[in-house]
Amino acid sequence: MTRGDASMCLAVPMKVAQVEGNVATLESDGVRARARLDALGEPVVVGDYLLVHAGFAIRKLDPADAQETLKLLDEMLTAGDED
C-alpha cells in the first residue's frame, strides 16, 4: 500500500525527534515532517509516537497497544471456538 502521497486523510504514526514550543519534528522511515501540537492536549516528549492529520497531531500512540489489539483478536478467536 502506498502512503507516500500527501493526502490529507492518510495518517501514519510518526516518532517525535524534537519538540520546540508547539511544534514537533517527526521521523518515520527516514522521512522527516513537522507537526503542530495545539490540537493534542497532552505533553509530548522525544520518542513519543503521534498520529498526525494535515500537519496537526491528534493523538499520542503507545506502540505496545498493537499487542493489546492482537490480544483482543486472540480472545475473540478462542471464545469463538466455544460458541
Partner: peptide, 14 residues
C-alpha cells in the same frame, strides 16, 4: 474495535 487510537470521549482539546 480500535481502542489503541480511539477513546470513548475522543480528543477533548481538538
Amino acid at each position: 474495535a480500535y481502542p489503541r487510537a480511539v477513546a470513548w470521549e475522543g480528543n477533548g482539546q481538538a
